[in-house]
Amino acid sequence: MPLAQELKPLEIDAYVDAVSLDAAVRALADGAGTPVAGGTDLWIQKDLGKRAYGRRLVNIRRVAALGGIAEEGGRIRIGALATMTEILESPLLLRAAPVLPATADRFASVQIRNAATVGGNIANASPAADMVLPLLCLDAEVELARWHENRIDRRRLPLAAFFAGPGKTRALPGELITAVSFDRPAAGSFGAFQKSGPRPALEIARVALCIAGRREGRRLTSVRIAAGAVAPTPIRCPRTEAEIEGVALDDAAIARALESLGREIAPIDDVRGSAWYRRHLAAAFLEEELGRVARS
């Protein structure tokens, strides 16, 4: 007997419960597989049948090699399967890159944080992906793997170069995100994540902004700014970063930074907010963060 609430007849020919990276990338090799991990974006039932899926469902949830949050040789590596909850509670990240747990705290809900993975948040390539912003600010790289010529072929790509458009990445067919990694920020670094509210978390950002760098009095150096929901992909704002870099922050400098930010973002009107409001909020977030430094 069919299940009453079964999905629209979605044609799946095969299901692979991958237990190793080898098995996972082999199952995905021909580009006809869909990897599933947390399911929080993939499994939205009303979207099934509307989105393009491969005919082979590959469950990667149990691939141990894709999990974990660890530091090796001054580089922090977050496995693609690390959940938002794991990031939120990671002692390493709380110490070394607290902007990541701070962002995870603004991410969806407990239940979704328990399921959603960092790999999924990146792979989904939403312009509003929260966790991508601090990773962009950390100059993170995406680690990818695919089955190619009878072996696992790995490569790394700067996260900033990974997104090709809403829902589109530069991953090759059959390529799987295995991890995201970045150099451990130098001592004295700071990072802050801001997102539209008023809900603390359960909201798809109308605008989100992340800023990171090092504070030296009223100056910021190694400035990194990333913004979400203001362009077809999450973006870095290099000209605004340059505007701020090393400058003693006062009202005039902040005004120049805001003006630059306004030129670097290109938000649209949609049901969640107007382009005007997105610009207004992005400026408010940056002004607040820079103002904090200026007043220090």
């Binding site: 609430q5 079964e6 999905l7 629209k8």
Partner: peptide, 9 residues
Amino acid sequence: AESEAICDE
């Protein structure tokens, strides 16, 4: 129909 999925189709 016999299921919601068949109805949808």
